[in-house]
């Protein structure tokens, strides 16, 4: 599944569609191919002993789905319960996982040539997670690599368990 994002990009003839959202003050985008649904349902149950990157779990039509805390993953300070919070449910290689974002903004269509590779000026965010960045309406949108997102959480869970 590692190359899915690449495939999605090339087949769409150099056009990528991104779901953009914000975590704290930073705008992020993620390839629409990974987004299964956006869910206002926020009855998150805490999981004792879990990695701090995991916010908890929710009931997604009978399945228990893990919900990530992007603040912890991206190292962005958390606001106190923003009202536009959404659960962005991703489907990454058949695995469903939620990301509790502060706000879902828009769907953005960008050309491949608009993207710039991992610029040095995004400091706080773990560089492994960044696919590219794009400038839109004077704002920098950080495009996240969904697969890497899972890897980072996985590693943190492993260290937690060890």
């Amino acid at each position: 599944m590692n190359n899915t994002s690449n495939e999605a990009a090339t087949t769409a003839q150099d056009v990528r569609q991104l779901v953009t959202f914000s975590v704290g003050d930073t705008a992020f985008g993620i390839d629409i191919a990974f987004v299964q649904e956006i869910n206002p349902h926020l009855d998150v149950t805490k999981v004792p002993g879990a990695s701090p990157m995991i916010h908890g779990v929710v009931n997604l039509r009978g399945d228990v789905v893990t919900v990530l805390d992007p603040h912890r993953i991206l190292r962005i300070a958390a606001d106190t319960a923003p009202k536009d919070r959404r659960n962005l449910v991703l489907n990454i290689g058949g695995e469903r996982i939620g990301v509790l974002v502060d706000k879902v903004s828009d769907i953005l269509t960008v050309n491949q040539d608009e993207l710039s590779q991992k610029p040095a000026n995004v400091r706080s965010v773990d560089r492994r997670l960044i696919d590219a960045v794009v400038l839109r309406n004077e704002q920098l949108v950080v495009i996240l690599n969904a697969t890497k997102l899972l890897e980072v959480v996985e590693q943190s869970s492993e260290t937690e368990a060890a």
């Binding site: 149950t45 999981v47 004792p48 995991i54 009931n59 228990v64 893990t66 996982i97």
Partner: peptide, 27 residues
């Protein structure tokens, strides 16, 4: 009994999760 995702599968305190009557998940 509902299985937890793989990120949560090895937690020692938990035997899994379930969905209660009101739709919320309980450990």
């Amino acid at each position: 009994v509902k299985p937890l995702g793989r990120h949560l599968s090895n937690l020692p305190l938990l035997a899994g999760s379930t969905i209660l009557g009101d739709g919320r998940v309980a450990m």
